[in-house]
């Protein structure tokens, strides 16, 4: 299974808007949202395969992605500089548009 395009730190990425059943570690509340890669954690086996006893698949790159809270929650009751960071596997990410200048 292809690992997909590798994202560097600083890349703007969107979490795919897909809603499959099964054991998925990309939280629902982040699907379709755009954040910035802040750390490349390393290569790990896909939990979506491990959860079903399949241990010998290809590894995925795991990233830490930072989001602005005001981008996640329309009614966020806090300052604009509050953020949220999560680990997301590369197969759940796609490149996002660059921020307009």
């Amino acid at each position: 299974m292809s690992v997909g395009k590798r994202f560097p730190v600083g890349a703007r990425v969107r979490i795919r808007r897909a809603f499959p059943p099964g054991h998925v570690r990309a939280p629902w509340y982040l699907r379709g949202l755009t954040g910035e890669v802040c750390h490349v954690v390393g290569e790990f086996r896909n939990p979506e395969e491990l959860a079903y006893g399949r241990n010998d698949g290809a590894k995925l790159t795991l990233y830490r992605v930072r989001f602005r809270q005001t981008d996640i929650w329309p009614d966020y009751a806090g300052p604009a500089h509050d953020t949220l960071e999560v680990e997301i596997y590369g197969n759940w990410m796609e490149p996002a548009e660059e921020k307009a200048a």
Partner: peptide, 14 residues
């Protein structure tokens, strides 16, 4: 308010 709150959601390996 002038201190940012950063939430870490422990979703994967760490």
């Amino acid at each position: 308010g002038d201190v940012a709150v950063k939430v870490h959601d422990s979703t994967a390996e760490l």
